[in-house]
């Protein structure tokens, strides 16, 4: 069987593993009903003035008075049909709430990731090619700082410098790309920087280490002995092998960035999934909490699947593991 066939088998195997994982995820997400304190029925019934009869009626309407697995089954069958339920407080279906907000969160996370790769990858390669040079030291110091600085702190500093003092950018809000690409871009620069700089630092450190290890391998020495040019050795042999673990890291990093957007959205008043989720947690809006948690978990699974596939494509040994 050729390598293409192996790759398909590998993808199929990964997909099969994903199914029980998804079932476990849905169970975990739905279990939030049990973990989260408070009583949404009481809140919906009017709070302090609610009569017990009204609370009981609303509890029955929301199926909150049924056994856990019956509630789970109601919810799961709805999810399989694409119905994530209705927000208890937002007069909107959870699916449409997520549909409106997901592009914003993904814009932030993808932009942050692109920035992390664009900054981190070349910096790591340069540092790895010339260990202990001034460039390497600059990258090491810079990446240490980047890793140490919390995203939310950096976000606030960016607001003070770029928005308040220099009046270069707006400190808040979101403009859809379709409405104005330039406004969309200018409103997202700071969130991207806030998320991307930390990510770039991590990518740079991993790339540097990986590059140094790769350049010490026998096949690199063999390539040099064969008289290949440095540029060719680096581009064709060193980078391809050094970047395999970096791709795994980028996948994991993307997950972190997705999580990081939840705080960044709050700071820049961006109406993404993060603000939706935080608001829902504060309101005990269970359908929204479950919906966002499920979608976020699915995104993580898909990202990991994609990383596994890319890794498998780059490194055939992985397919046999």
């Amino acid at each position: 069987m050729g390598s293409g066939g192996s790759l398909l088998t590998f993808i199929g195997r990964r997909l099969l593993i994903t199914i029980p994982l998804l079932v476990l995820i849905t169970l975990g997400v739905f279990s939030l009903v049990l973990i989260i304190p408070g009583d949404p029925a009481q809140t919906l019934a009017g709070g302090a003035h609610a009569s017990p009869a009204t609370v009981a009626r609303i509890r029955a309407e929301l199926h909150l008075d049924e056994p856990f697995f019956v509630q789970y089954w109601h919810w799961l069958t709805g999810v399989l049909r694409g119905h994530l339920g209705y927000s208890l407080f937002k007069s909107q279906s959870v699916a449409s709430g997520i549909r409106e907000r997901l592009p914003i969160t993904v814009s932030i996370a993808v932009g942050g990731m692109v920035l992390a790769v664009v900054l981190g990858l070349p910096a790591g390669i340069i540092a790895g090619l010339r260990p202990r040079s001034w460039a390497d030291r600059a990258v090491s110091v810079g990446s240490s700082l980047g890793v140490a600085i919390p995203d939310f702190w950096l976000a606030m500093i960016l607001v003070v410098v770029l928005a308040v003092n220099l009046h270069l950018l707006s400190p808040l809000g979101y403009v859809p790309f379709a409405q104005s690409p330039s406004e969309w871009f200018s409103h997202l620069i700071m969130p991207w920087l806030a998320l991307g700089i930390g990510g770039a630092a991590t990518v740079a450190r991993q790339t540097r280490g990986s590059m140094i290890d790769t350049l010490r391998q026998d096949y690199i020495r063999t390539a040099e002995a064969k008289g290949l040019s440095s540029a060719r050795i680096i581009a064709k042999h060193a980078c391809k092998n050094a970047l395999s673990p970096v791709i795994t890291l980028i996948g994991i990093q993307f997950g972190y960035l997705l999580g990081g957007t939840f705080i960044i959205e709050q700071i820049f008043s961006l109406p993404g999934l993060g603000t939706y989720m935080l608001d829902a947690i504060s309101d005990k809006d269970l359908p929204v909490i479950q919906g966002v948690a499920l979608v976020t978990a699915l995104l993580f699974v898909l990202i990991n699947l994609a990383v596994d596939v890319i890794y498998g494509f780059l490194n055939p040994k992985v397919r046999l593991a």
């Binding site: 003070v160 928005a163 400190p171 808040l172 700071i267």
Partner: peptide
Amino acid sequence: FVQVSAGPQEVSALETGA
């Protein structure tokens, strides 16, 4: 009505004219 989340960003929103 412009979305401004509660917190220090309220002050910067005002300062920057957002």
